[in-house]
C-alpha cells in the first residue's frame, strides 16, 4: 500500500486549485496556489528523491543503475506483476458489473432502498482487514473430506488456484465496494438518469441499449474514477494476499526487500512510477472524450 498512497493526492493538487476572481485577488490566489503546490511537492518529492539517490549511488562505484536492472531479472518479478494486473482487471470488471446495474435499479425503481445500498457498500471500510482475512480463511477451511466429490468443494478448491486466486478477486471486490459506490454515485448524481433513460426508452431503445449507449457514455468520468481507485487498491493491497499465502506484486516487493536494501527501494520507486503511469492512462481515457467534444 505504502508506495501508492501519494499517487492520488499528488495528481489531484492542480485540479483542486480555486478559480481566479478579480485582478488583485487573482494574484494573491496565484501566490497561495504556488505555496501550497510547493509545500505538497516538498512533502511528496523529498522521500522520493532521497530514495532515488540512495538506489543509484553506490558507496564504492558511484552512480549506477544496477539496482533497477536487477529488478527485471529478479525471480518472480514478471509473474507477480502480471498476477497483480490480472487481479486488478478482474476486480474492476466484476465490481462494476455488480454495482452499476444495482445502483441503476435502485435509483430508477426503488429510491427508498438507496440508504440500504449505501450502508452495505460502505460497510467494508469499517471491517479491519485482519478480521476480514480471518473470516475468509475460516470459510475456505469448511470443505470436509467427505464432500470432496461435490461441486461446492471443487469450487472452494478452484477459487484458491495459486495461478489465479479468484478468492482474492472476491476479497478485493468487497474491499473496493465503498470507493466504487462513491465514484458511481457522484457520476450518476451529475446526470438526470431517469429522464435520460426514459428519453432513450421512448426512442425505442431496449434496456441493454440504454445501458451501453446512454448510461455508460455519460458516466465515463465516474467509471474511470471507480476503476482508478480499484486499480490503486489492488496494486497496493498487502494484508489479505499475504495472510492467504499468495504472492501478487505488493507481497513480492516485501519478500524481495529483505535480501538487498538498494534493490528493495528501487522496486518501491518502480512500482510507484508504474502505478502512476497506469492511473494516468486510465484518467485520460476517462476524460479525453469529454474535453474533445
Amino acid at each position: 500500500m505504502a508506495p501508492l498512497t501519494p499517487a492520488v493526492p499528488a495528481a489531484a493538487v492542480p485540479a483542486a486549485a480555486p478559480p481566479a476572481g478579480r485582478q488583485g485577488r487573482a494574484r494573491r490566489v496565484r501566490v497561495w496556489r504556488g505555496v501550497v503546490l510547493a509545500a505538497a511537492a516538498l512533502y511528496f518529492l523529498t522521500p522520493l528523491i532521497t530514495s532515488f539517490v540512495f538506489t543509484v549511488n553506490d558507496p564504492v562505484r558511484g552512480f549506477t543503475l544496477d539496482a533497477y536492472l536487477e529488478i527485471f531479472s529478479a525471480e518472480g518479478f514478471v509473474q507477480s506483476l502480471l498476477l497483480s494486473l490480472g487481479l486488478a482487471a478482474a476486480t474492476i470488471v466484476v465490481v462494476l458489473l455488480l454495482t452499476l446495474p444495482a445502483m441503476l435499479a435502485v435509483r430508477l425503481s426503488a429510491p427508498r432502498l438507496r440508504p440500504v445500498l449505501e450502508v452495505i457498500c460502505t460497510l467494508p471500510l469499517v471491517v479491519p482487514p485482519i478480521t476480514f482475512v480471518a473470516g475468509i480463511s475460516t470459510v475456505l477451511r469448511w470443505g470436509p473430506d467427505h464432500l470432496a466429490a461435490t461441486p461446492f468443494y471443487q469450487t472452494i478448491i478452484a477459487v484458491q488456484n495459486p495461478a489465479f486466486p479468484a478468492v482474492l478477486v472476491i476479497a478485493y471486490v468487497v474491499l473496493a465496494l465503498p470507493f466504487v459506490y462513491r465514484s458511481l454515485d457522484a457520476g450518476l448524481g451529475a446526470i438526470d438518469v431517469r429522464t435520460l433513460v426514459e428519453a432513450a426508452r421512448n426512442c425505442g431503445a431496449s434496456w441493454p441499449h440504454v445501458l451501453l449507449r446512454v448510461i455508460i457514455p455519460n458516466l465515463r468520468a465516474g467509471l474511470a474514477s471507480a476503476s482508478f481507485l480499484t486499480l490503486a487498491l489492488v496494486l497496493g493491497e498487502y494484508t489479505v494476499a499475504r495472510l492467504l499465502g499468495y504472492q501478487p506484486f505488493p507481497v513480492w516487493i516485501v519478500t524481495i526487500s529483505g535480501s538487498n536494501a538498494a534493490m528493495s527501494v528501487a522496486v518501491s520507486i518502480f512500482s510507484l512510477l508504474f502505478a502512476w503511469l497506469l492511473l494516468l492512462v486510465l484518467s485520460t481515457a476517462g476524460t479525453r472524450k469529454r474535453s474533445g467534444s
Binding site: 446526470i191 438526470d192 429522464t195 428519453a199 432513450a200 467534444s293
Partner: peptide, 10 residues
Amino acid sequence: VFQSYSLFPN
C-alpha cells in the same frame, strides 16, 4: 418531450 432538458449530453 420532457419537462426537464433530456437531450443525451454525449
